[in-house]
Amino acid sequence: MAVYLLRRGGEGVIVLALVSVLVFALIGLMPGDPIDLLISADPDITSEDAARLRALYGLDRPLYERYLAWLGDALRGDLGFSRLYSQRVTAILWAPLQNTVILMSLSLVLGLLVAIPLALVAARRPHGPVDVTVNLLAFAGFSVPAFWLALLLILLFAVTLGWLPAGGVHAVGDPSLESRLRHLVLPVLTLTVLNAGVYLRFTRGALLEVLNEDFMRTARAKGLGLGQALLRHALPNAMLPLTTVVALHVGTLLSGALVVEVVFAYRGMGKLTYDAILANDFNLAMAALLLATGLTLTCNILADAVYSWLDPRVRYDD
């Protein structure tokens, strides 16, 4: 197991390195290098000045040399300077990361809390009226565009009813827990709907599959009620594949979080990435993207570990 995790970790590092090369190359293709922006900000700069500045910052060197320089600094813990926030990148990342983790974990847990009971109710009578309704709900949940749902919720709860704030992490000058929670409601609600749709569809499918197993018939034959049989025998077996789906879904969840964070002006990793890309803040975009990738890869590896812990039949020491 330890060997397996070590190998997966090693692979993760390789993937991270590949992604960093890819992103670095793509960033080089984004419009406007820092000097272009400097020129547009100050028309007095001559082309000689621009060339001199480019040489000073090494922007005239080939891409791979610049990448290696960036990598060397990054490995020493220096991710460079953010132009957007005029701060070291390492000093910016922490708060948004926390905000995103809060948003994601809340909506993940709530999504499961909505999906599992609904799936259990639906599985009592497959293709019955309840099941069809639940299935429709699941369809709606994963088909709804996140940003539209977010706008509708803002329209209802912030504009029309005025119950909840339309955006932000907390009210200006009021970082109290209450204010934070009030600002979390709508973003968490949006993401929960999306998650619940995916989890519901999957849990229902997994339950229906387990229903035909021999051990289910045995459980019913020994006199266990349908509800108890579903809860005690079907659900634990359906939970196994669900862990994998939930973990593999973390990448998608991060994507969804990005959209929701942008609409609600919620300062998390997604909004940070988006702002950095729009503002051509290369160092920050690079760091934020790698952090998101690293987070996803870690969750995937953890999922494998949890899977083998939950199901002793699965062993990784091949």
Partner: peptide, 23 residues
């Protein structure tokens, strides 16, 4: 598996933001 698992939207944003004229 990798492309399925990666946080694809943030990465696509970078692809979408590149300047096609540079290519």
């Amino acid at each position: 598996d990798l492309v399925i698992a990666l946080p694809i939207l943030p990465l696509l944003l970078i692809v979408a933001a590149i300047d096609p004229a540079r290519l």
